[in-house]
Design a protein around this nucleic acid. Structure first.
Lengths: 190, 190, 190, 190
DNA sequence: AATGAATGAGGATTCATTCAT
DNA sequence: GATGAATGAATCCTCATTCAT
């Protein structure tokens, strides 16, 4: 019956539970009690560790972005330079990004970012990170790496939403589309 | 003195008020009372006309899409064939699409579509309409009009979100970006 | 089943219930639910009519002071000029001022006035009213009516607290004491 | 390294912190955690030492009364017999009695005494002690020392409350008033 | 001696919704 | 057609208190 050092464990459990609940509800209409219950503790403890509902949400968002960043890194680790952009795209359309949980959390994120400064900041970091990753990857192969990265990253977001709402089961279609555009951006150079 | 023919007027007022409230709140966390108050009637009446909160939301979404469609039509009416795709793009990044109200409503839409079938259907209609519009417009100028339309419409959505969260005041930047991509899609053909 | 004009009735019931509950608890540790229940309605309705707990309290305080003022007026109406000061004193130590309810409410008032501006204002009004009443009544019989009124009103408060905490059942003792001091204040003149 | 003899130090710290918190809040709406935090320990330890919240309050009250008694004693030590009553009055209106802390604690006391027997008992002891002090001091100078002491002590309480709520910054006015009444009580004899 | 962990109970407040008029 | 009245259910959050260590 461990009685010390529970904090990180509890926080971790709560974050996971939050993502799960948001996924199940499809929106931010989730109660702290639900989250706490799923995490196996009282709602009072959830408040104790996070201070409030919004902060639990923000922590969940942070986690989602971290997980996504890890996914990208992992994908990048497996490929050589010429294909780095493709690797990023593949990470964006990995099956793990299309679980109901993740979809909900991601959509929900856009809404949260409208009113919560921390969430907005998180989103901006994610966004600039992915853009800089793409810029870097495109430098050897595209004439205007910066512009191409902007195009690609916006395209990815748009395709993601469409796939999430239309065909969450077959993200490969969207992936293929993005890869095709990537090719065209490369060709444009030669 | 019971007024007659009030129904459409009341509904109209409620829909407008809903959009305004969503815009003010930045989310769907809006109470029926707030909406009704802004619309100048009792919340009971709002229920009477719409049956429930979700249905008010759906009506508001319907209105947003209708307004947007009108905007596109208006823009299209002013241009000749070769520029129809550009006109659509311009409509998508018109200032009226970047008022806080509209941004919130639009973002919120994605969330609502996750749980509300009617909302999802509405979104799909909007989406296929814009895609078919683009396909049609691109037919004379692009090699693969369908694919190019898909690319463009996804790109528009992605750029819209990014502009909305980053630079709601200068949507022209995003518009220019989209137009540039449109050009490249045309060039690709020749 | 009357369905209109309930507001004053409900407010009245709530104010009465609040005083009763404060009396029963002996402090402000009273829940809105308790009050509402005693008043025969849901706590939601109590909030609807008063806006919040503190405002219910303030309304109760206002009522207590109004009742007290009425008591003083009634007592004054029965006596001739030379005895008006004595009448005020008798009103202050009337049995109705020593019901547990009233005692609690009055004590509690002092505490509320520490943090709630409205309550403080109410108390100041009560205080200056009673002082001016006393001054007026003492003018014909005391050398320094103003000073004597100050003395008497402070004495009354002090005796009230002592009687309330020591002998709530026999306020006459305190009354007699105050009347004796009143006499000595008069004698001082002759 | 378990410290020894910490108990009195901890209790002392808690009592001080309680008075400070009550002063800051202006009421008994103070949490044990706040008190414990201010006292530099965990709330669990506060419970360990006092057993519960009310007992912490009672201890604080006890301390307030003890401090006050010490103040009176100190003042008395500086004067000769004929002025002992005046000395008591001066002690009652010393600046230290009008810090927000002390005022709040004192007011609050009246409320606590309504429901807590120990608090009531404490108040009665304080009250009879001050009365006997006054009686003793007035014996050589007033015709009815007992009655005069009763008058004075009630007057002091009344003036205290009024000063506390109206002019906490200038208690001297109230003091002067009480001293004037004292004089008149003396004169009455000669 | 001392505390972090944990919770159950409760409390103010909100809100969608219903109903009688 | 329109609304004030009314509420039950829920939600976030707080807090005194207990316990294992």
């Amino acid at each position: 019956m461990p009685k010390i050092g529970m904090e990180p464990i509890r926080r971790e459990a709560l974050v996971k539970a939050t993502i799960a609940e948001i996924g199940a509800a499809g929106s931010l209409d989730v109660t702290v009690s639900q989250i706490a219950k799923r995490a196996g503790m009282s709602s009072a403890l959830a408040h104790h560790y996070f201070g409030g509902k919004e902060q639990i949400f923000v922590a969940a968002m942070r986690r989602i972005l971290a997980d996504f960043a890890a996914e990208v890194r992992a994908e990048l680790a497996t490929v050589q330079m010429p294909d780095r952009a493709a690797a990023i795209i593949r990470a964006c359309f990995a099956p793990s990004c299309f679980t109901p949980q993740t979809i909900s959390a991601w959509m929900t994120f856009y809404v949260l970012a409208q009113t919560n400064d921390q969430a907005l900041r998180l989103w901006r970091i994610y966004q600039s990170r992915i853009r800089s990753n793409l810029t870097h990857a495109l430098r050897p192969v595209a004439r205007d790496p910066q512009g191409a990265a902007n195009t690609l990253s916006a395209l990815i977001d748009g395709l993601y939403i469409r796939a999430a709402l239309n065909n969450p089961d077959t993200p490969e279609i969207a992936a293929r589309h993005a890869l095709a555009v990537l090719d065209s951006l490369k060709e444009a150079q030669s």
